[in-house]
Nucleic acid binder design. Structure first.
Length: 418
RNA sequence: GGAGAGGUGGCUGAGUGGCUGAAAGCACAGGUUUGCUAAACCUGCGUAGGGGAAACUCUACCGGGGGUUCGAAUCCCCCCCUCUCCGCCA
């Protein structure tokens, strides 16, 4: 949610952000509505003051009662109009995207993202590489057929050593994050619409969510929703900040409108799994912690031995709630390209304002905290492991850091292939 | 699923029609006392919005919504949530 004061005092900031994002919101119309609202508020409050004053006289002066009755009738009409205006302004404000960091690149889609750095050595193979779908079938560790049979196309099974690999990776990532000061969570996998609204998923990504029939609940699209919502309507002690939380959860997304986009294998699916990093911090520190989360993402990939590059995400590829975003794209030998595995967004006060998450310092100063939302690892990282560490016979070498958790160092190819 | 209890400020908790934006305690902030810590005592202390240079003042808020009334935390209706007990169950 944009601070309405910015709208009143420096609307050009918001216009500029909307212009760069290609958002056609009519800012002047909102300002007009707000102006009308504020004028009416003054009127209504003056009338209420009169009403209250007269009411106090009523006990001793029965004549005042008639006056108050008249006044109340006028007042209720104005109050109805006021309510209407308030709702309109609020609805329009809900749709406004966040401001933009000045350095965010222009552009309409991911082709305009700017590579910041490249790490790791891209593996070379002396044989024809397989993609994860092929490997998954060959090794009997990914089953999309039965995922579709049991649930729907877009759902899948990890099986055997594939499942063990994922469990190991997700557990390891959480251990690494707790070493870096994160508190681990397991969260609800459903959240009410208010929580989704507060985190900015509604109204912007309404078509991406799975609602639960007959309930005011949706399956979570990410544990960001439940972790950020955790502190809704709370005032946090400034000297306890930052709060760093991580969680493992399934993530459910309808992916409506993205059919055909790199749909082979399990790269884009209706349910994936993720370890998430969330930080609540003071506004002046959000850039620092935004970078901190990026360091964590990179550290994890480095430890796994996966080559990647970091991109500065352009306006067109960034969601409305984002102020600045870095994506990490890992190398996928099967695709022969870098593809997104993690993303890291500084949401500034966009979520905290909607959710009412504030801080208070020793001097009694209050404000809205900033939130950072960043991926740590997802199934896609496991896919990158399969594709990058495959051997000629289709077997896959497990990264060393995961071996204490998998209990094996290789996913063997079946006998007939050898 | 059945039965009961309850939702008041950062927390605990009074409060059944106007003097209650809300007692008291805790916590917190400032001060006095003190060799240090502790304790004691005094003072202050809800949130949001509007007006004002300020003092101050106005409006709203006691789970949410509606109603009765000149006036509601308090009375009525609907909804939501939490807790306890019973049943069922991972």
């Amino acid at each position: 949610m944009i601070d309405i004061k910015i709208l009143r005092e420096t609307p050009e900031l918001i216009k500029e952000s909307c212009r760069r994002r290609g958002d056609a919101a009519d800012i002047d119309a909102i300002i007009e509505l707000d102006k009308e609202y504020r004028e009416l508020v003054q009127q209504v409050e003056a009338m209420r003051a009169d009403r209250n004053r007269l009411s106090k006289e009523c006990r001793d002066n029965p004549e005042a009662r008639e006056q108050v009755k008249d006044l109340k009738e006028q007042l209720s009409q104005q109050e109805a109009r006021l309510q209407e205006l308030e709702t309109q302004v609020h609805d329009k404000l809900s749709w406004l995207p966040n401001l933009l960091h000045p350095a965010v690149p222009d552009g309409n889609d991911d082709t305009s993202n700017i590579e910041i750095r490249k790490e790791g050595v891209i593996p070379e193979f002396s044989f024809k590489v397989k993609d994860h779908q092929e490997l998954g079938e060959l090794l009997d560790i990914i089953d999309t057929q039965r995922g579709a049979k049991v649930a729907q196309s877009g759902f899948y099974y990890w099986k055997g050593k594939g499942a063990q690999l994922c469990n190991a990776m997700f557990f390891w990532a959480q251990m690494e994050l707790t070493k870096r000061g994160f508190t681990s969570f397991m969260t609800p996998c459903a959240a009410k619409s208010q929580t989704l609204y507060g985190t900015g998923y509604l109204p912007f990504f309404a078509d991406q969510t799975y609602p639960i029939a007959n309930e005011d609940l949706c399956l979570i699209g990410t544990s960001e929703q439940t972790l950020v919502g955790y502190h809704a309507d709370e005032i946090l002690e400034a000297d306890k900040l930052p709060l760093s939380y991580c969680a493992f959860s399934p993530c459910f997304r309808t992916e409506s409108g993205s059919y055909g986009k790199a749909s082979r294998g399990i790269f884009r699916v209706h349910q994936f799994h993720k370890v998430e990093q969330i930080i609540f911090c003071l506004p002046e520190e959000s850039e620092k912690y935004h970078k901190f989360c990026l360091e964590n993402e990179e550290y994890l990939l480095q430890q796994l031995g996966i080559p990647y590059h970091v991109v500065d995400v352009c306006v067109g590829d960034m969601g409305a709630p984002g102020y600045r975003k870095y994506d990490v794209e890992a190398w996928f030998a099967g695709f022969g390209a870098y593809r997104e595995v993690t993303s890291n967004t500084n949401l500034t006060d966009f979520q905290s304002r909607r959710l009412g998450i504030r801080y208070k310092d020793k001097d009694g100063n209050r404000g809205y905290v900033h939130t950072i939302s960043a991926t740590a690892v997802t199934d896609r990282v496991a896919i990158a492991i399969l594709e990058n560490f495959q051997q000629e016979d289709g077997s896959v070498i497990i990264p060393e850091v995961l071996r204490p958790f998998t209990g094996f160092d290789k996913i063997e190819a079946p006998e007939q292939v050898k």
